[in-house]
Structures are given as C-alpha cells and as structure tokens.
C-alpha cells in the first residue's frame, strides 16, 4: 500500500530546475533510500513533500489524498515528520523543551508530553543532555535531536535528511541500528537521504537515485549498486567492484 505518492513533480527556482518530472511511491512500513550527488535535488524533494515548497508541476499524494497545497504544520499533523539536513534546533530552549514543544502536537498535558519526550530522548541516546541548551550541543547530538523531535510528533512517516554525523565504524553501526529500530519498534515508515553508502545500502529496502533533479534509477540496494548509470553518476568506480 502506498503511503506517499510523488507524481511527476517538478520544482523550478527561477531558471534552475531543481526537480524535473520525478515520480515514485513510498510504501507502508518501507525504508526507502534517496541518494544522488550534491545538488541533485534530494532536500528539495523533502521540502516539496513536507509542504515547504509547492511543486511547480505535479502532485504529492498522502494515502491517496492530494497534499501538495498544504502547509508543513498540516502535514505534520497528518503524520509526516522530517529532520533538517542543516540542523535547526530551537536554540535557546533546552534539549528536553525542544522535544516537548513537538510532542504537544498530539498531547495536551505537559506531564504526558514530557513523558513521551524523555522516552524519545532515551531512544536517541540524549538522556544525559536533557537540560543542555540545544545550541550548546555538539553537531552529532544536534542531529539526533532532530530525530528525537520528529519522533515526538508521533508520525506515521519520517523523512530523514542526512540525519547523522560522524563516520567511524561504531557510529555507522549505531546509525544503522537507530534507523532500523525506528521502523521495528515504532512502526514508522522511513524515507531517508544519506550520503554514507554503507548506511543506505544496509537499511534501505529500495533506493531511488536522483541526478540533476531527475530520477535516474530505482531498485533494491544490490540492483542500484550494480547499475552502470548510477555508478557513473554517483557511486564512482570503487563501488562497482
């Protein structure tokens, strides 16, 4: 069953075509990877899906209903949460307050909002930082705060835009585990942008490849890993081996 359907979406910024005629579906309980070189239009795709940008052409459907004219807060209410690639914590609020603010979307009482927030902060490994002002967090933790905030809105779908930092092997394995647990423990469908190939190959059921705003490939991780067009445009020689 398709939760999100992107239909022939194009997005122009003046003369620049950030997206051209992109279509794909995100199925329920799926982890769908979105990859492509810098400037390929991945973040723009997220901004269109979550209502920040209106598509110049085409439509976004959520459970069959057209949502491409709705504002981000409405999409969030409908169950679509996102993280920002360039992190945007509510700087002069503590880590906990950041998450409580987003928990309020489905919870009226502060006590319950706080309970849910502590839970997602534990899930994202931020339990020790709850009283730190979010602008004082190191980048890796600010990225995880993005995830915690998104989870606190109790979404059905989460859009993760390069939601991790750090590249050492332990960190990579932690990241893979967190993404998988978002699906298995919380039953959330995931659309994920990630530059790190090991992560995207490990977590994705399917992968979509964008290049210069166009979809150039779609398939399972192994299909993508062997696709000559993708190798040339993005993966480079070492991945083809």
């Amino acid at each position: 069953m398709s939760l999100i359907e992107v239909k022939n979406v194009s997005k122009q910024f003046g003369g620049l075509a950030a997206l051209t005629d992109v279509s794909f579906v995100l199925n329920k309980d799926e982890i769908l990877g979105l990859i492509g070189p810098n400037g390929a239009g991945k973040t723009t795709m997220f901004n269109v899906i979550n209502g920040f940008y209106r598509p110049t052409k085409g439509d976004v459907l959520l459970s069959g209903k057209r949502v491409s004219n709705l504002r981000p807060h409405v999409l969030c209410k409908l169950g679509v949460a996102r993280t920002f690639q360039v992190v945007r914590p509510l700087q002069r609020m503590s880590t906990l307050d950041n998450v409580i603010a987003s928990a309020f979307i489905r919870i009226k009482s502060k006590a319950e909002a706080e309970k849910l927030s502590l839970d997602v902060l534990q899930f994202t490994g931020l339990s020790d930082d709850i009283n730190v002002l979010s602008k004082g967090l190191p980048l890796g933790k600010r990225k995880r705060l993005e995830i915690a905030r998104a989870l606190a809105t109790q979404p059905e779908i989460i859009l993760l835009d390069e939601a991790f930092a750090g590249l050492n092997p332990t960190e990579i394995n932690e990241q893979i585990e967190i993404v998988q647990k978002i699906r298995t423990e919380r039953g959330i469908t995931i659309l994920i942008i990630e530059h790190h190939m090991k992560v995207i190959m490990a977590v994705s059921d399917r992968i979509i490849v964008l290049n210069y705003g166009q979809k150039i490939a779609e398939g399972t991780p192994s299909e993508i890993g062997h696709n000559p067009v993708v190798i040339e445009a993005y993966l480079g020689e070492e991945h083809s081996a």
């Binding site: 981000p72 996102r82 914590p89």
Partner: peptide, 15 residues
C-alpha cells in the same frame, strides 16, 4: 518560544 527560535522549524514540528 518555538516560533521565536525558528519559525520554519516550528512549522514543520506541527505548529
């Protein structure tokens, strides 16, 4: 306060 700190982020958090 969320609106003060970042209107766009607040918006995408459902506010």
């Amino acid at each position: 306060v969320a609106i003060r700190e970042d209107q766009d982020a607040a918006e995408s958090l459902g506010i």
